[in-house]
Design a protein around this nucleic acid. Structure first.
Lengths: 347, 347
DNA sequence: TTGTATGCGTTATCAC
DNA sequence: GTGATAACGCATACAA
């Protein structure tokens, strides 16, 4: 309501001096500073960030664009981002695309208009328009969670392929030979990489991943309608012959659905069917049995990505991209065990 | 990068005319409009929202402040808010307090500096400082999820007391007489109201809620460390005598912990112990057994609150507060059944 | 140590 | 229909 001029008038100084007090910049004598601070207090003056931003050409706003704001994986990332941002005086705008490229483009447009200083993006596409747009407007970007084609873009993610490989090795070491793999959309690198990891692990043991045991989720991977895992598991039970002895779920939501479908079918986990999954999040801990997982350091991913973005904002906009790949953590719990020896397996 | 003047120059018109084209305000001849649009296209011009906001004194930004951004209840609310906001050209800043009044105050300060047009708040306190601050700066606010003392504040929430009452009635009708109630912090209205609802239901049936069967969660209700439900359930099993035959969990996270603690203790749900809970969210659906709940319309709460806030922004800032109380939905599933008749119960 | 002039990019107002 | 001017609130550059 009151402006810097009001404060200046009341303290009998110039607006510039008030600005110096507020920003702790330049020299201000102690008595003057006192008078100004008193005036600020009395008027309840709050600086107008808009004017400041217009002048300084920096908004101290970061945007975080994810594909599903209701997924704890992404909100945990958000916490990591938030903590780093706050420490540097930045605010975060949190946006949700639902895996829609149109939504993503729409958000970018708004964010560029709003002059955000940088963008953290879980991209719906592997390359192209979004990055061109951002570069055209000189908005630094860090890609989260997924691989992209652009070598100039910074990125922070977890090693999906290696995580899937390790989980699958674990199953194989327990004696599993037929493993179903339920994953997300084909357009998303994590979906594809996790299948690739499973396949490589099987091949390294002289096994194969037959097409009938692989399912790519539909549009709803990571979206509100989290029934894909359930549907895919039912689909496998309905059509695969013989049944697999274990199921690999490519993320937490899929795992939820799988466990639910197995319960419904009267199959015990891990007695009748082992289950392993990516992600390890609070909600998972309510599951019975407690899942064997490849855990991703979500908080750290957000944390590191925000640091990278702030560095980029402060530093060279044209430097080569920095690709950070975090290790997963293999956590073996109660959802995986040796397969029951069936007629089919003996054959 | 390029400004309205650049566009004006290229189109050989004044900046004002460009402004008219952008905003569809005032009269512009078709040929002029064409030239301007071409220039905009050629330059890749994007209007600077900051300048616009400074001039118009409206940012078209809403803030949504919740106590735990990782809780799907709140992110589902966020979706409701987001959808309404986007439809009206507003952006949303999503903030997380972790139930800390200091964080809340800190955010409000920043948001006021950033001139947000309105605030949606899940308050950490029942009244006081936050509302005074917002009113002093004429920032409209709508309170979410919780009751507050201030009659001038708009609010949107679900009927916690009635929901708890209904769930407890359900348990009583099944034959339960001893019911443990595990809830959140005492300072939060939903925690208290849910206990009150349970107590009233018991009293209406001539029963009591003994102190030894009530647990108030610690600081971490709705925070990252979601072990409170687990700890509280273990505490009840360790000290209550005789055991309750049912447990009421005041939110989804508490329910997770309860089910886990019961599994660990080798107790079957609902065979040995019935469980009912507030909230019904995607992650819950992975639970076994599928929970009996009082479901809150989280999306609708966010949706309605955002509408209310936009109305308030457009309308009378001093009108009396509007308190919207949504009904819960009682969903009876598999986690509740008649209690096993024990020695204690027969006594 | 403090003040003045100027401009950030846009739009309201009034004039033509 | 279109344009000139001023102003939003602040900070940069320079002067005193």
């Amino acid at each position: 309501m009151s402006t810097i001029s009001d404060v200046a008038e009341r303290a009998a100084v110039s607006a510039m001096t008030v600005s110096r007090v507020i920003n702790n910049s330049g020299y201000v004598s102690a008595p003057t500073r006192d008078r100004v601070e008193r005036a600020i207090e009395e008027l309840g003056y709050v600086p107008n960030a808009l004017a400041r931003q217009l002048r300084s050409k920096r908004t101290k706003i970061l945007a975080l664009i994810v594909s599903d704001i209701t997924n704890p994986f992404f909100t945990t990332i958000a916490r990591g981002v938030e903590d780093v941002a706050a420490r540097h005086g930045f605010s975060v705008m949190f946006c949700n695309t639902d895996e829609s490229a149109a939504e993503e483009a729409q958000y970018l447009q708004v964010l560029i208009e709003r002059q955000v200083d940088g963008v953290l993006l879980v991209p719906t596409r592997r390359g192209g328009a979004s990055f061109r747009t951002l570069r055209a407007h000189r908005v630094p970007v860090v890609v989260l969670d997924r691989r992209v084609n652009d070598p100039f873009v910074d990125s922070v993610r977890c090693d999906s392929e290696a995580g899937a490989y390790a989980l699958t090795r674990h199953l194989i070491s327990l004696g599993h030979r037929r493993i179903a793999v339920l994953t997300g959309r084909r357009t998303i690198s994590t979906s594809v990489d996790r299948v690739a990891g499973c396949r490589r692990a099987l091949q390294d043991s002289g096994l194969v991943l037959p097409g009938e045991l692989v399912r790519f989720g539909g549009y709803n991977f990571g979206s509100l309608n989290q029934t894909d895992g359930y549907e895919m598991a039912r689909s496998v039970l309905a059509s695969a012959s013989p049944w697999p002895t274990a199921i690999f779920a490519a993320n937490n939501f899929i795992a939820f659905g799988v466990v639910r479908a197995l319960h419904e079918a009267g199959l015990a986990v891990p007695g009748d069917m082992s289950v392993v999954a990516f992600d390890d999040l609070p909600a998972d801990w309510a599951m019975d049995p407690f899942l064997t997982v490849a855990a991703q350091p979500a908080y750290e991913i957000g944390h590191r990505a925000a640091e990278l973005l702030l560095d980029r904002i402060a530093g060279d906009p044209d430097a080569i991209g920095n690709a950070v790949v975090f290790p997963f953590e293999l956590i073996i719990r109660n959802s995986s065990s040796a397969p029951r020896v069936t007629e089919a397996a003996r054959a």
